[in-house]
């Protein structure tokens, strides 16, 4: 079974801090990493391949330096890495990204399953998985928390919902996006790291994959960011002092009075 795992480079988000006075982003020691959600996609892709045989390919779109990050995936069992890198792709929103990745996937060809992370840590949109499935004209299931069965014909998996899960069956090829619960990603091995060091990442341009430049990058993106700003959390913190008994009593009082005044669902408390 041939599996393509789509990944994204993101900044290690906990390092993104805002300077509230100057309204700017503090970027000290910011590090580029593979989107943490995508590491579960990589692990799942490798596990399926280990079971069924075949090949795993990791695919990303980004600046040339992303190639180094893609090499890391070769240390945890991915067989090949492909990077779409071209200024034509710059400024892509989720629609244009879905398009470019779908062209990349068609270029790689001969695929059975595409695995994506649930969403990217920086954008949090969760749109590219379903978007690219649609562009490829194949079915998708989001938020997969477990694969119950997979063979060359179909996949049966559990999609996480707010109050449980759905069991979905669909024919291959298909796209799944996976949640953290699905597995625990392995760490690289020394031999894998050595192999990754020597590996070469295939870098493709828009032309290489036959992408229509009208549908790529900024030009192919219906949405535009018009403004960014730092959210104001004007939290009025009140510390409740005293002995534990007093603290509990004061807090309960405050909450009870507040709930009864402001909430229409008074049965809650």
């Amino acid at each position: 079974m041939n599996i393509i795992v789509c990944v994204k480079q993101v900044p290690a988000t906990n390092e993104v801090k805002m300077n509230k006075e100057t309204n700017t982003i503090i970027r000290e020691g910011i590090e580029a990493i593979i989107n943490p959600f995508d590491t579960y996609a990589i692990e799942e892709g490798v596990r399926i391949k280990e079971k069924t045989g075949g090949k795993t390919t990791v695919l990303s779109m980004g600046i040339p330096s992303v190639a180094d990050l893609l090499k890391e995936t070769l240390a945890v069992g991915i067989d090949e890495a492909v990077l779409l890198s071209d200024r034509t792709f710059a400024g892509a929103d989720s629609l244009a990204t879905s398009y470019a990745l779908s062209k990349g996937i068609e270029h790689i060809g001969d695929y059975d399953l595409i695995v994506c992370g649930k969403q990217a840590m920086d954008g949090d949109t969760a749109q590219v998985g379903p978007g690219l499935a649609e562009k490829l004209g194949i079915p998708h299931t989001t938020y997969v928390r477990k694969i119950e069965e997979i063979n060359d014909k179909y996949i049966r998996c559990q999609r996480m919902t707010e109050d449980g899960y759905d069991i979905i069956e669909m024919p291959l090829p298909a796209v799944i996006t996976v949640v953290k619960e699905i597995n625990e990603p392995r760490l690289p091995s020394l031999k894998g790291m050595m192999r990754a060091k020597r590996a070469v990442v295939t870098v493709l341009t828009a032309k290489d994959i036959g992408a229509d430049s009208d549908l790529c990058g900024l030009k192919g993106s219906p949405t535009q960011v018009v403004k960014t700003f730092v959210p104001v959390h004007d939290v009025q913190s009140e510390m409740i002092e005293g002995e534990p008994e007093e603290q509990a009593e004061k807090l309960a009082k405050k909450l009870l009075s507040m709930q009864f005044n402001t909430s229409d669902s008074t049965e809650v408390i």
């Binding site: 801090k17 219906p222 949405t223 535009q224 960011v225 018009v226 700003f229 730092v230 959210p231």
Partner: peptide
């Protein structure tokens, strides 16, 4: 929200 809520973005289509 973007960047884990550190930044808000207004978007149009």
């Amino acid at each position: 929200p973007a960047f884990g809520g550190n930044l808000m973005a207004t978007i149009i289509c």
